[in-house]
């Protein structure tokens, strides 16, 4: 690998741009989520602050910045403050190998998807540390749920991605996009509909969103693993949750929906349109489906998604072997 100043400058610029994208994404998505929730539940949503409540999310983040950080008694200090940092910073790395446009990739890593999956593990670890360190029974229960859920849902997610990797023969996200065409019938979603479905279900489980938000189920555990966090600690968890949603949406767009390729003119706009459609889908099902019970959550995964993923992978392997 060429470790010149040019590479360093490229990484620096990419990371700064990614931080900007993460913050902008959180501000926009909080507003979209609350407004969409309002319309789905037949109420107006935020409408007081600014026209149609558009400044609400910015006011909320200002409030979070100004809030006192409250630390409960007998916490494990190192882990309590490490956890939000550990939730936030690895996410910056995860956006590096994603091809946003034909020429716009933070850092073209040959094994891009492995990098994403490797550093995504730190998110789970931060949830565990947060739940354990805050010396709170709800936090501990949330962490215990987070661990079994994320271990379970990571497997079908990887199996679904593996089917596409088998078919393309590459771990590089750019090459996976290049293997697809510009029109919807040339995208992987039509070749691998089952893998797309498995990925879609397990991305909701992996990002801890309703109906699979058991680690922070408000009605049972107040806020689960981040019950005791206030101010910026909470804000970092919040930012990283929305950034993780954005990341899985970008990976989904890259793997199944043709990435930056689209009708008429390829470019960065298609990546963002597709990713935000998936984001809206995630928001939509959050306010449409009730939360599943914990045993149901694990049964969906181990009894349905995992065998389906294995069968899909097996069929893909046979077809790839027979039709070179």
């Amino acid at each position: 690998m060429d470790l010149s100043l040019v590479t360093f400058a490229q990484i620096l610029v990419a990371v700064l741009a990614i931080i900007g994208l993460m913050v902008a994404n959180a501000v926009v998505m909080v507003y979209v989520e609350r407004k969409a929730a309002g319309f789905i539940q037949r109420r107006p949503g935020p409408y007081e602050v600014g026209p149609w409540g558009t400044i609400q999310a910015i006011c909320d983040s200002m409030k979070l910045l100004a809030k006192q950080i409250f630390v409960p008694a007998n916490v494990d200090w190192v882990l309590f403050f490490l956890a939000p940092v550990l939730a936030f910073f690895p996410v910056l790395l995860l956006f590096l190998p994603i091809p946003f446009g034909p020429y716009l990739t933070g850092l073209a890593v040959p094994d891009g998807i492995v990098l994403i999956l490797a550093f995504a593990g730190f998110g789970v670890l931060s949830n565990l540390f947060a739940g354990w360190a805050s010396n709170n029974k709800y936090g501990l229960l949330g962490a215990a749920r987070a661990v079994s859920q994320s271990v379970a849902y990571e497997i079908p997610l990887i199996l679904a991605l593996l089917a596409i990797i088998f078919q393309t023969g590459s771990l590089s996200l750019t090459e996976i996009v290049e293997a697809q065409g510009s029109y919807p019938w040339q995208w992987n979603i039509l070749v691998q509909p089952l893998a797309f479905f498995i990925y879609l279900v397990s991305l909701v489980g992996e990002t801890n969103r309703a109906p699979f938000d058991l680690p922070e189920a408000e009605s049972e555990l107040t806020a689960g693993f981040h019950t005791e966090y206030s101010g910026m600690g909470f804000a970092l968890f919040f930012l990283s949750e929305y950034a993780n949603m954005l990341l899985v949406s970008f990976v989904c767009a890259t793997f199944f929906l043709g990435g930056y390729k689209g009708p008429f003119l390829d470019g960065i706009w298609w990546t963002f349109i597709k990713a935000y459609l998936i984001m809206f889908f995630i928001v939509w099902i959050r306010w449409t489906f009730p939360r599943v019970r914990f045993d149901q959550l694990l049964n969906i995964n181990w009894k349905w998604l995992l065998p389906l993923g294995l069968i899909n992978l097996w069929i893909t392997a046979i077809i790839v072997k027979l039709l070179p």
């Binding site: 094994d111 492995v114 490797a118 995504a120 593990g121 354990w132 501990l140 962490a143 271990v151």
Partner: peptide, 30 residues
């Protein structure tokens, strides 16, 4: 780099998380 990423994926993402699971399942105080 492939081995490095696999090291993180398997040991940090899976093994450590499972060890944490074992710690939580056994009775132990802070």
């Amino acid at each position: 780099p492939f081995l490095a990423f696999m090291q993180l994926l398997i040991y940090v993402g899976a093994i450590c998380v499972l060890i944490f699971f074992a710690i939580m399942l056994t009775r132990n105080t802070a």
